[in-house]
Amino acid sequence: MSEQVINLTLKVWRQPGPDAEGEFKEYDAPGINTEMSFLEMLDVVNERLIERGEEPIAFDHDCREGICGSCGMIINGQAHGPMRNTATCQLHMRKFADGDTIVIEPFRATAFPVIRDLVVNRSAFDRIIEAGGYITAPTGSAPEANLIPVPKEVADTAFDAAACIGCGACVAACPNGAAQLFTAAKVAHLNLLPQGQPERWTRVQAMVDEMEAHFGSCSNHRECEAVCPKGISIDFIAMMNRDYLKAQFKNRRLASQSG
């Protein structure tokens, strides 16, 4: 560990409100300790802004441990910045050099309108989960847990998908503003498990249809996978597409039987 002090220039997107015009503003950020996290650097810049009588930069953040998914910004053109598998709050200033200029923007996407500065509205993700991102298990009563054996490999793969923190970097990095990786992660988590089988086909159809009502289309750029702070694989997108295709037939057949 080598503690250093560096001087930076920031170009930050400032936008006073959802309907207001935004612009980049330049700020000097001298005397930044390299032990700081990126968000602590912004804390320091904000303290200085308040001292000068300027409104601080608004940004979402909460746990600062890389798990809540609140934080996220485009740093020098990359969602969550230059470090792989790392959310913005876990990025540290030692990754930057003295004299650097850092450009900071919100997660931009049609489905993520800007609320203020670096804060965006990601509630379209909640709509996708509401459409089918669950297993219908009545609360308060369930079969004994070990009655449902789950092969370890299946549980592990389901977990790999379930690790998604819902930050939205995948959407922000996608040139089409698509939410395939987010949606596929939840579809795969639930569709892989034995408990998820009864609703497998209706789930994937409902979630994908809801996703398409808000987000752009996937054209296999794979940027989503590159920026994902949890390293979620685009293999899950292939899995989702396969299930979605099958669902077109299965759901139709189910519907005809019931009718």
């Binding site: 669950y134 297993i135 298990a137 609360t139 308060g140 009563s141 369930a142 079969p143 004994e144 847990a145 449902i148 789950v150 092969p151 370890k152 549980a155 592990d156 389901a158 977990f159 379930a162 988590h189 639930l190 498990l193 408990q195 998820g196």
Partner: peptide, 12 residues
């Protein structure tokens, strides 16, 4: 029991 039924991916 409840969490397993919901699909919580506990270690196996």
């Amino acid at each position: 029991d409840q969490c397993v039924a919901q699909g919580v991916p506990f270690a196996r």
